[in-house]
């Protein structure tokens, strides 16, 4: 990747991260407040709490994996034409 491609990729990654935040927020809203009236118990807690708390943790982890493996790309952190200092 040249300098320009790197920075375009970085902008893309930042936008994807912001979008990932939006997904977590929407899931958190739907699973927690959305299920608040349901009288079901899962693993000794109300369904909304299980889905909104434990579920949000799982969703966030899945999103972190997808971002890291699918969206984010490897690149050199050194400027073009410079040797790595290690």
């Amino acid at each position: 990747m040249n300098e320009k491609e790197k920075f375009l990729q970085i902008n893309k990654e930042a936008k994807a991260t912001a979008f990932a935040l939006l997904i977590v927020v929407v899931y958190w809203l739907l699973a927690g407040f959305g299920l608040a009236g349901v009288e079901v118990t899962v693993f000794y807690m109300p369904l909304w709490a299980f889905a909104g708390c434990f579920g949000t943790a799982v969703i966030a982890l899945i999103i972190a994996v997808v971002l890291s493996k699918k969206v984010f790309k490897n690149m050199s952190l050194q400027a073009e034409g410079e040797e790595a200092d290690e």
Binding site: T17, V24, W48, G52, C53, A60, A64
Partner: peptide
């Protein structure tokens, strides 16, 4: 439920 918002901070 409120504390769980912190799961996003690292990524």
């Amino acid at each position: 439920y409120m504390a769980m918002v912190q799961v996003v901070v690292i990524f």
